[in-house]
């Protein structure tokens, strides 16, 4: 066969895969959009639910999801980054490091409902944080920790060794090198990890099921110790409880659309930041 034909076929397959992926993504967005858009108006975004969830808005759930996600990042980013820095920049390669890496990878494979149970046992009960934003954030934080660590780890590994050498050769300490050369270069990769983490934390239901979420609150959360409504859990609750399935389903689609937009816009923001940061490195 002519190698040009082979190449053509290769590209055709790649385009097909791309098209299929875009098709699925497009259908999901379209489906949610069509079903959800009808119910969305200003009131839906800013009001509290009324009449046993069949009317009113979902503002407390939006706020709740925001707090939970923010809390999980505040908790997992410093910890994950510190962990990745230790693994990449300080620890000698060896037995213990391999065990740590293995554990992190295994942690990533634990089903999210198990994290939920863990959060219930440890944060809610043992530490006595109760069903609260704090407990939920910590549980979500642990859930996304492996992802943050491995993204940060990869970003750090991708920083060329020659840059570290350049810094050391000028009399910089290890910490100065990390702070001034390695981290800035790895920032875009780390941000990617954070984006993925945000997306995951915002969308998970099981980890907050027993640790943070509740079907209904009067008004908005007052402190980190309050229990909250959250979008994914609200969708779940609307679809499984209550007495007006048709009205509730409509609201659930509205929630889904909001959740989707939230996650997409966070990703968009992070991609923008990343691009800007990358451009900065090249002086554009």
């Amino acid at each position: 066969m002519n190698k040009k034909i082979v190449q053509g076929l290769g590209f055709a397959v790649l385009y097909l895969c791309l098209a299929a992926t875009l098709f699925f993504l497009g259908t999901i967005i379209y489906f949610i959009l069509v079903k959800g858009i009808k119910i969305i108006n200003w009131g839906f975004l800013t009001e509290v639910p009324r009449r046993a969830m069949t009317e009113g808005g979902i503002a407390p759930a939006i706020i709740g999801t925001f707090y939970l996600t923010l809390g999980s990042i505040i908790f997992s980013l410093p910890l994950g980054l510190a962990c990745a820095i230790y693994l990449c920049e300080y620890s000698p390669t060896g037995y213990i490091v391999n065990i740590i890496r293995l554990s992190i990878n295994n942690l990533a494979g634990v089903p999210s409902v198990v994290f939920g149970l863990f959060g219930l046992a440890v944060f809610v009960k043992y530490f006595g944080f109760g069903v609260s934003i704090l407990s939920g954030s910590l549980t979500l934080g642990i859930l996304i920790l492996p992802g943050i660590i491995s993204a940060a780890n990869e970003a750090l590994l991708a920083v060329p060794q020659s840059l570290r050498e350049a810094s050391f050769a000028l009399g910089a300490t290890r910490w100065q090198t990390i702070k001034k050369v390695v981290l800035p270069s790895a920032m875009s990769g780390i941000l990617t990890g954070v984006i993925l983490g945000i997306g995951r934390a915002a969308g998970e239901t099981a980890p907050i099921l027993f640790t943070a979420a509740t079907f209904y609150t009067r008004g908005f959360p007052k402190s980190p110790m309050s229990e909250v409504m959250a979008l994914p859990y609200h969708i779940y609750a609307l679809m499984t409880e209550g007495t007006h399935p048709d009205k509730q389903t409509a609201i659930a689609y509205g929630c889904s659309l909001i959740l989707l937009l939230l996650v997409l816009s966070v990703s968009g923001l992070a991609i923008y930041l990343r691009q800007k940061q990358r451009g900065h490195a090249y002086g554009h």
């Binding site: 020659s162 050498e165 810094s167 050769a169 300490t173 050369v181 002086g283």
Partner: peptide, 27 residues
């Protein structure tokens, strides 16, 4: 710091020209 080195392959920092030269003094 006392024994400086210029490497076989150029390895400037992804920073500005000025910052590349000022880096060693800052650290």
């Amino acid at each position: 710091r006392r024994v400086g080195m210029v490497f076989q392959k150029p390895n400037p920092f992804p920073k500005s020209i000025f910052q590349n030269v000022s880096y060693g003094m800052e650290v």
